[in-house]
Design a protein around this nucleic acid. Structure first.
Lengths: 354, 354
DNA sequence: CTGTTAGCGCGTTCAA
DNA sequence: TTGAACGCGCTAACAG
């Protein structure tokens, strides 16, 4: 049996309450007494039973997740993961609310953040929009002592506590490396389809991609960036035009969303010969892989990001340390052959995860 | 506040004990009473607080992990993950013991399984060796009502409750597809380095790989399999010989262990021009990637496998259902550019995972 | 068949 | 500065 507070109380010759004060670093204990208790804790190798502690405290963590609305399939998947976490919240002693805001809308995001602060959240997670006012709002949360994490897209200057997402420069390099290897000696330039150069993750991916393309044996030409605003219609139109304008095109790197438009344009033009690399495993990109129109998909595991965000917010709320290495989000590479079966994404209740 | 047993007792007009009997499907309750209680449970939307239940029961799950000893870096990583789980065991109410057995040794494995059964384990996880006697031993565990999972290498005919590992045929196909694309139009045969054709996962990987190679445009020749027994020395010697014998060699698929020997042989021969694909992200394969001697590494996340095994064993022990989709182990693809930083593997204590 | 009661390990009043 | 006593939500004796 593991030692309990009773054991250490007996061993130290004090009462339970005193042990508790020492354990929780509360005042009202003489230095000598404290030392005795700490010695007992050491010698018995005591570890607090967090489940019992939470039970006694009936602690709950009200968390707020602010997620952009709209049709972006990745964001919808992300929200589904948050909902799955809501389903688990009874077991995790969290009370998670989801707030939707228009995408790329800084002022809506700011309002949502301030509302969450006012609502007494003990932790906030946000898909950041890269604007100074947003950073200021995050700063207000920090001033209020509310743990704050950015999700998917970062805003490092904001002083957020943590970023739950991938290294997007490395993601761009990965895309570039795959593009170079898949194309081999095949000549021709590559096109880049982005959502908007105003968001940080897209800029970073482009940077990494361009670096590798420039370094590829001889260097490969990269056409001017097409900005599709993550909108399938616009993206599809841009790609269709590009296919016409550049008959010698060898590949396309789609570093944002709107991929259903990309896939349709490719399909309509019958161009399954291009090397196409896209981001995020969503229904459109999965379909593209299966139909041979997309060659590789780089993915960030939205479920992992959400669960990580929750762990980090709770840890910060309790003043506990975060093991950075353990919260690192990987850049997954999917090709047709290692595509996971559909439906394995959002996790339902997990009764015995205690 | 979530409803508790008290609420449902009051609502149904019975005592706590009766509620508990219904909740745990214990006998000694009239059908009418049971119905009343169940109605209350439904209408109040009661969900049991597993943490509190486990606290009251002071339940512990003694689990046994049987892992092959020896220098295979993947297995050492796997064991490190189990040790990390041991560190968390206080919080997870598990008591995990690790038993080492010689690799590929069926009778040692069988003895270890029988010992675990005798020791009163409530769950057993094993890296299976493919032999009928092993299946029989697993059958004995099943007969004793002890949940059993295979780890990394399966033995489907044994009636084990679950396999915690990847789809190795798909892994072989993935390797084949990458090989074909990386080689492009470059001519030349590819060699295959395996550990032993006696283990199932190696056979399955080979099968998937060969299928894709045969289907590649025109079909690419695959040389006879080199069996390196997962031994770096032997593997290195075989590869060195192969490089001499087949000057036109275009690529190597290493589907087992012993990759430090492979990397050394490649390095000694100065052959960074070959397309080399290996399995499991370990120190040798990581070094190979970084030095440009290996082009891609397919990986199974040992940490995920271990944590999944624990969840499944506990769920089975409690008669709870397992969400298959959620326990699926992915086939990770790593290239130089998306290599995760070192040291992010085994997870230390996670106090608030309750 | 059903109810009462005493914990599980911890946190938190309230007195002393 | 310290301690006794009660409760968190649930289970498990033991009565009735």
């Amino acid at each position: 049996m593991r030692p309990t507070v009773h054991d250490i109380a007996a061993n130290a010759g004090v009462s339970l309450a005193t042990v508790d004060r020492v354990l929780n670093a509360r005042p009202g204990v003489r230095a000598v007494t404290r030392a005795k208790v700490e010695a007992a804790i050491q010698s018995l190798g005591y570890v607090r039973d967090v489940a019992a502690a939470n039970l006694a405290k009936s602690r709950v963590y009200p968390l707020v997740f602010i997620v952009p609305e709209g049709e972006n399939p990745f964001m919808r998947g992300l929200e589904a993961e948050v909902r799955a976490a809501v389903g688990r919240s009874a077991f995790e002693r969290t009370r998670i609310s989801i707030v939707n805001v228009p995408p790329f809308d800084a002022s809506a995001l700011i309002d949502a953040i301030d509302a969450a602060i006012a609502d007494g959240a003990v932790g906030i997670a946000v898909v950041a929009v890269d604007a100074p006012d947003v950073a200021a709002a995050i700063g207000r949360a920090g001033a209020a002592g509310i743990p704050f994490v950015t999700l998917v897209s970062d805003l490092a200057t904001s002083g957020r506590d943590h970023f739950c997402g991938v290294d997007n420069v490395a993601a761009g390099r990965t895309a570039g490396s795959l593009m170079a290897r898949f194309l081999g000696t095949r000549p021709g330039p590559v096109a880049v389809l982005a959502g908007s150069m105003l968001v940080r993750d897209h800029r970073e991916r482009l940077e990494g991609f361009r670096a590798v393309m420039a370094g590829a044996s001889g260097g490969r030409a990269v056409l001017g960036v097409l900005e599709g605003q993550d909108d399938p219609m616009l993206a599809g139109a841009l790609i269709a035009q590009c296919l016409k304008d550049s008959p010698g095109l060898a590949g396309i790197y789609s570093l944002g969303a709107g991929n259903s438009g990309l896939v349709e344009a490719l399909s309509a033009a019958g161009r399954d010969d291009l090397c196409v690399i896209a981001h995020e495993l969503t229904p459109p990109t999965r379909a593209g892989l299966e139909r041979g129109l997309i060659d590789a998909v780089l993915n960030q595991d939205a479920g992992h990001e959400v669960r990580s965000a929750i762990r980090i917010l709770r840890a910060k709320a309790d003043g506990l340390p975060v093991v950075e290495a353990q919260e690192r989000i990987r850049i997954d590479i999917f090709i047709k052959e290692n595509l996971p079966p559909e439906g394995g994404e959002a996790r339902p209740l997990q009764p015995d995860e205690a």
